[in-house]
Design a protein around this nucleic acid. Structure first.
Lengths: 283, 283
DNA sequence: CGGCAAATTGACACATCTCAAAGCCTGTGG
DNA sequence: CCACAGGCTTTGAGATGTGTCAATTTGCCG
């Protein structure tokens, strides 16, 4: 048994239910006002998903409307809660509206690996539309707002809107590209390089959805959680972070990551953003 | 610089061109007779792709016809040749008809990581239909036969055949699930367990397309190539293989892998085949 | 039999894990 | 305003895991 105390701890809480904030059909029910900027669930989906997709291809007004009218419930999930369970057969897919979510796999020894990190705009388990059975759990790495879109609606969309279908398909292939980048990092980079690479990736992914501030972004997780993303021990990750700090490449304090020297970091990590498909193209 | 001499070597050969065996529109041009059982390219695609998809959902006769009529050229690629290059902008996607192919990423140090292995029936770079730019190269790990399907035809299919589209989409999400399994293995399993897990995976994937023989399968790659899949050094992999041999879990000689005790291997590797989505379901 | 690629070995350096203790920071109650 | 508890972070020390390099052995092919 090791690290990720917050995950372990909160995993036990699975008993009590999430608070559903609201469930909208056409998306016009007022929210609880948790954030002034976000008026309702559907609006949020449009903002964040359309921004994700719109970065990669242009969306027609009609298509934005379709996304907007997707039925979706938005709920808050507290940090550490596993809100989609391994082996389950979900009837809907989850879109991250705010916060960080992660896909997680457990081994018998109690070890755990976070196989993917998801930021606002990411459709975490869209693949469950096709795979049916979850091969991993999905956990809130920080407090999150999660929108839930029924598979029935998504399936209908695949029958009627080929272009949007291709864009959603694309989003799952971007996830796969990110998986491959992680595999390459885990296999052939030093932990320091691996962390640097991940920070470059997160910075760009967050910037697309407007979640960066200058050269900083909020990353409110513990070193133990980072260690589970990297597949290393928390102690080792701690030492690597100190080394990166000494290099003056990145700072991470008060839950804020600061990229001190983007070019240096990119070079050090051999980061090439191609795999994120951040350019707009007809798809 | 290390291992994978065969890859290094053959990478240099990039100069000379592949031999295109044939290019068929409706798929009835005779092949060179490389294998008696495989009469022509389109037939092969049906056999192997329909078998891949048909394992996961039922295909109507019409759908099989559609697959059959996909324009496709089949070519032979010799072991070690990188037949899709990183950074390229392919106009078609490659389906493995026979042999093993791998996705590969290089680091400046000369290190390389194989981020995925593909067996017959796999649509190696189907994602390039949506991602446009290759974030990795694709290399023949053994002599291969590769069918090439133009993106135009696939795109047309997404406009007219939602169900087949979903199945192709599914195939890319299965790839992603495999990526995640690799991430979990790399992060939290010992090399021995990692190898065991990979062998379980390959065995089942090959069995689906009829490429196993009893409890054995042909795996004609070097230990150095395996090391590049695992993200380890060839020396370390060699020692891990010896250990597995001593455990009498698997044998690997004359390019044939034999699963000596499936249950033991599965238990040892904590292998759970869910992520391969091998069950048939309406998707 | 000679030649070559691949597998294996040995020795040693470096990376990473584990365990346990210590330090630090923050929120809470007195 | 201080003391304390609890969760993180940091440190130290020692055990393992893994990489590197170079030499040796093995197996296959002509």
């Amino acid at each position: 048994m090791r690290r990720a105390i917050c995950l372990t701890m909160l995993r036990a809480r699975r008993a009590h239910e999430d608070i559903f904030l609201h469930l909208t059909g056409a998306g016009y029910i007022r929210s609880s006002g948790y954030r002034q900027a976000d008026v309702n669930g559907a609006m949020r989906i449009t903002t964040v998903l359309a921004r994700y997709l719109g970065q990669r291809d242009s969306l027609s007004g009609e298509e934005e409307g379709i996304l907007e009218s997707l039925p979706s419930g938005v709920r808050r999930v507290e940090a550490g809660r596993e809100f989609v369970e391994v082996g389950s057969h979900p009837g809907s897919s989850c879109l991250v509206v705010s916060g960080f979510a992660g896909r997680i796999q457990f081994l018998a020894s109690g070890k755990r690996q976070i196989t993917a990190v998801h930021v606002p705009g990411d459709f975490v388990d869209l693949h469950s539309l096709l795979l049916k059975i979850m091969d991993h759990g999905v956990v809130a790495l920080t407090d999150c707002e999660i929108a839930t879109v029924p598979h029935a609606a998504l399936r209908r969309l695949t029958e009627t809107h080929p272009h949007l279908t291709r864009l959603l398909w694309m989003s799952t292939t971007v996830d796969a590209a990110i998986h491959r980048a992680w595999i390459a990092s885990m296999g052939r980079r030093s932990v320091e390089e691996q962390i640097a690479h991940l920070m470059c990736e997160l910075f760009l992914r967050l910037r697309v959805v407007g979640k960066t501030d200058g050269n900083t972004f909020r990353f409110p997780v513990t070193q133990a959680v980072l260690a589970d993303m990297l597949g290393k021990s928390n102690v080792h990750v701690n030492r690597a972070l100190q080394s990166l700090r000494r290099m003056k490449a990145i700072a991470w304090q008060n839950q804020i990551v600061t990229i001190l020297d983007w070019e240096a970091l990119e070079t050090f990590a051999e980061f090439d953003s191609t795999y994120l498909s951040l350019h707009s193209e007809a798809r």
